[in-house]
Design a protein around this nucleic acid. Structure first.
Lengths: 214, 214
DNA sequence: AAGCCCCTTTTTGTATACAAAGTAGAAGAT
DNA sequence: ATCTTCTACTTTGTATACAAAAAGGGGCTT
């Protein structure tokens, strides 16, 4: 993950905002004003504007009907629809991954899962979140289709703030890791229908827990 | 198509470029330089920049590894992957639509299809293209999930330039309309598995024809 | 002739300035 | 007191200016 490329102000601001939103520091519904952010980041409005546009394009922010952009806030219905969309994509990933599994992707998935288990058992929430991301990313990569993989990661980013809350206790983590295990079995069975159903149920469970936690 | 909202320079430029790309006037691989476009549209670099960013975010344009943005050009492999992603989403739409069909969406789909048939029989290519869009949009809408619907439309826009070429003769149009008919039957059967398989085969056929045409 | 370095010209990113369009608030009218 | 309207203040969109980085070109060296 080397980002040696572009420490441009716009990108810097973009990822900073993304992080703050993901961490919940910027609550949904918060208004982001360009001048304020410009001062805060010691930059001018121009790069702020670019960052805001990019985040808006990703659905992380939304433009209010008249004025201002806000951290996206969703009703239960909307959230449920977003998760539905994500589930469909995840299921598609699982199906395709099951068809195309090779030794490398297989070991990537396994390795990520082992890391999840390790983090879950030691109850290390931050590590688990990171490992969980890697686990799902490994499945996306296994599709061999970067376009679907991107789609899936985008939804994952977008729903991050809402998913994060469901991992509280060590038991939550362990349960999630177990759920991964089943999913892996489905995918490794190389039966695509089973795999996508497996993903669907993993994600549905995950969604229900998110809703409860919010 | 009333655009009473924001005839902002940035939006104007964005849609103008999109149209030119869709129409093939801007060939894939063409370099778009900010100053040139600024002059051409009688604006400054700022709104051009914004338009370019938005189109890049949509995958219509791509940033060259060092300098400049270009109209996206895809290898057969990439194109095939993009279409695969689109197929998955379309299939998901069909499945969900099948589950949630109501009288309104049903009649929207039917109406769009009738328009397709009419255009196909009179061999009116332009009308058919428009009606075909509406037909697919009607299916997207029928999911009741705007997030999936958006995703599907985005892919449709993105692949538009490549799909357009496959409709040449009146026979092409009629065949496509027939394929719609089957798809409708699958969706209206309200059996979601059948529906998504139906969509998958419709799209696969469509893709193969696109590739041949390119 | 090939390779290397330096200089010029584009190009990109950022800052600042300005104009247009809202919004809110206060003052006045009913 | 409430409603209206005018004014000032934000806020957004666009233009222009400037600095840094990079690509291209030419000449020099070997």
């Amino acid at each position: 993950m080397s980002e040696l490329e572009k420490p441009s102000a716009a990108s810097r601001i973009e990822s900073a905002l993304l992080e703050e939103i993901a961490a919940g520091e910027l609550a949904p519904g918060t208004r982001l004003d360009e001048v304020g952010l410009a001062e805060r980041f010691g930059a001018s409005r121009t790069p702020v504007r670019e960052a805001l546009n990019r985040l808006t394009a990703q659905g992380i922010l939304v433009a209010g009907k008249k004025r201002g952009v806000f951290v996206a806030e969703y009703t239960i219905e909307e959230l449920s629809q977003i998760f539905e969309a994500m589930h469909e994509i995840e299921a598609a990933c699982a199906r395709i991954a099951a068809q195309r599994l090779n030794l490398l992707s297989r070991s990537d998935i396994t390795a990520a899962q082992q890391e999840c288990v390790r983090a879950a058992e030691s109850g290390d929430r931050a590590s688990y979140l990171r490992a969980n991301e890697l686990f799902h990313m490994a499945i996306y990569e296994a599709t061999g289709n970067p376009y679907i993989a991107n789609l899936a990661s985008e939804f994952r980013r977008r729903t991050g703030p809402f998913r994060a809350k469901k991992f509280e206790t060590r038991e939550d983590l362990i349960e999630s890791a177990k759920s991964h295990e089943e999913l892996i079995n489905h995918i490794f069975s190389e039966d695509s229908a089973t795999a996508s159903n497996g993903m669907r149920s993993h994600m549905t469970e995950s969604f229900v827990r998110s809703i409860r936690a919010n």
